[in-house]
């Protein structure tokens, strides 16, 4: 291996790392706010990418149906919980949020899709269909379990992951898709050939991280999310509803996951089940950050991406093994003298 190969691998690793970093941040966000380990985050990568691919082909993406189905399911769950003493306003709000909202999104996509609008519109439509899916999934699956233990929530997450992979196969089919690059430009720096897509990934990831930082550091709503993570009871006592925080966290996570899929799909073919592996690598990074630290998780994502890239060069058949092995020493080190986020009594 010479320097130029090393640099190419490094570039590859860092570009992938950006995607892992996004997913790691989403996982940390959802876990700290709601104690849910959001295993299905990977499905949002797949769904985001496949939704965009369908829109590029002028088809109505399968995510539209998923959104409608889970919207109705969420409404059913909420109406059932309101069966005694639900005010008219809450029932109307529930229907607006879970049925009318998704229907409007679905109708917009169905109208615009055959016309093959420009790339930016397609990307926005893909995000608008995929991200809200996270909200209706929360309302359907996690909300009724708000007081469950971390372990129970994890088991539910794994089950939801399998369900979504199966639904992905039904609604998107078994064949993979690749989407058009966000930027067709390319240039060389020394020995390294850089594509516009890599630059777009890094720029959008960096932009999103800065935006998240500003959101958490400068806005009261962002601080309310942090407050919920720091002290759940304290947050409720000042009137921050856990439902509000959870919806915000799940919505953001869905958006980040879908964006990750849209960014990565020009680089690699995405199948209905590809997202899981990508999500798992984000999870490794999030674990290194103890599922609580955003900066450590983001830094660890770079480690994961670069390690994976070099591993695929030296021992390509073992690259996944090498990446996931990373967790073992890290957990050993972390188990000594670090603060652990305790399950609540």
């Amino acid at each position: 291996m010479d320097l130029s190969i090393a640099l190419i691998l490094l570039q590859d690793g860092i570009v992938n790392a950006a995607i892992y970093a996004l997913l790691a941040l989403a996982l940390v966000l959802v876990f700290t706010v709601t104690r849910v380990i959001y295993v299905p985050i990977g499905e949002f990568v797949s769904f985001g990418a496949l939704t965009l691919a369908a829109l590029e082909a002028g088809r109505v993406p399968g995510t539209v149906w998923l959104l409608l189905i889970f919207g109705i399911a969420a409404a059913a769950v909420e109406l059932w919980s309101l069966r005694q003493g639900g005010s008219g306003r809450r029932i109307v709000g529930c229907l607006l949020r879970n049925v009318v909202g998704p229907a409007i999104i679905a109708a917009t996509v169905a109208l615009l899709a055959p016309a093959k609008p420009g790339q930016l519109v397609q990307v926005l439509l893909a995000l608008a269909v995929t991200a809200p899916l996270s909200l209706v999934l929360y309302d359907t699956v996690y909300r009724p379990l708000a007081n469950a233990t971390v372990l129970a929530l994890l088991i539910v997450s794994v089950a939801l992951h399998f369900a979504l992979v199966g639904l992905g196969l039904i609604f998107f089919g078994a064949e993979g898709s690749r989407t058009a690059a966000l930027s067709g430009a390319s240039f060389t720096i020394g020995p390294v050939f850089v594509t516009g897509q890599s630059v777009a990934i890094l720029a959008l990831t960096a932009g999103l991280i800065v935006a998240l930082y500003l959101f958490f550091d400068r806005t009261l709503v962002g601080k309310a999310l942090r407050a919920t993570a720091v002290n759940r009871l304290g947050a409720r006592l000042v009137g921050i509803s856990p439902l509000f925080s959870a919806r915000l966290a799940f919505g953001l996570a869905g958006l980040i996951g879908a964006l990750g899929g849209i960014l990565v799909s020009p680089l690699t073919t995405i199948y209905y089940d590809t997202g899981f592996l990508i999500g798992l690598k984000g999870f490794v990074a999030a674990i290194i950050g103890g599922l609580v630290s955003y900066p450590i998780a983001a830094g660890a994502a770079i480690l994961v991406g670069v390690l994976e890239s070099y591993a695929s060069f030296f021992a390509s058949e073992l690259k996944e093994v090498i990446v996931f092995m990373l967790i073992v020493p890290i957990l050993l080190v972390r188990s000594y003298g670090t603060t652990v986020l305790e399950d609540e009594e």
């Binding site: 009261l220 601080k223 002290n231 947050a235 006592l237 000042v238």
Partner: peptide
């Protein structure tokens, strides 16, 4: 039940979250 890792001012502002 304070938000110990946040500033005094942030704690206060969050206290008025619903009236922001």
């Amino acid at each position: 039940e304070l938000f110990v890792s946040m500033t005094v001012e942030d704690n206060l502002r969050l206290g008025g979250f619903r009236r922001r």
